[in-house]
Design a protein around this nucleic acid. Sequence first.
DNA 1: GTAACTGCAAAATATTTGCATCCTT
DNA 2: AAGGATGCAAATATTTTGCAGTTAC
Lengths: 138, 138
Amino acid sequence: MTKSHQQILRDFRLRSTNSRSDILKLFIDQPHALSYSDIEKEVSPQYDRVTVYRTLKTFLTKGMIHKVLDDHGAPKYALCSTTCSQTHHHHNHVHFKCSQCGQTSCLEKVEIPTISLPAGFTIDEMNLLIQGVCQACK
Amino acid sequence: MTKSHQQILRDFRLRSTNSRSDILKLFIDQPHALSYSDIEKEVSPQYDRVTVYRTLKTFLTKGMIHKVLDDHGAPKYALCSTTCSQTHHHHNHVHFKCSQCGQTSCLEKVEIPTISLPAGFTIDEMNLLIQGVCQACK
DNA sequence: GTAACTGCAAAATATTTGCATCCTT
DNA sequence: AAGGATGCAAATATTTTGCAGTTAC
């Protein structure tokens, strides 16, 4: 079952304010990652730019959303999967960016295979960005 | 054999200017990826900020360097491997970012295993960012 | 000689900070 | 009531553009 935005905010010990709820709802409604400007486009001028920046930073810090790597270096953000909580974060993300529609989405079901690194390297976390054409744009 | 910076510039049909040579030499000398500010730190005030921006953009456009994905979204740049040329670009990069020393480097020898995606997805390019502790910092 | 490159100034963007006020708990 | 969140103004940082002068080929 999907959690409500209120529940999510409560889980992360965040006060439930209008801006937080509305921005969080965007993430819940969209299946793909959002850039700062995607978000601002939706909530402006209802909320101030600064509030959007601060809200994103808070969400990030609390581990509610994560940064998604984009080929162009423009950061995007996406909700962490339901298996993430404040204490237990799951870190191996696979993201797919479609070159047609430009949307980046998390492929929760795809696992990154084991990679063998040269001796002496320790792996904490892996992020795989795949670029290509998605199902819908095929 | 390693190519000289002059040779590399010639290969990419770029005029050999002082700033291009000096910036290219930085990439040749450093085994790891450089951010814009890493570069500016080295060449300022000898060259103007604008020149650095334009030089990087030119190198990128010509395919001489590539953007390296960083967990913090701050773009970094690295020389493409010698197997890349203007026409034939090899695209499956593995980058390793050490959480101790902060350096990001390309692991040229590591291959990304085949990933099976849901039906309907086409893969053009893959970038894997691994974070952990490197050999030297162990 | 000519097209391309560079530096300077300035514009345009993007992000952060300070502070007074308001709102959630 | 109190601490945290917000909005506004403004500071700071980052990147781009225009243009005149210079340089590589």
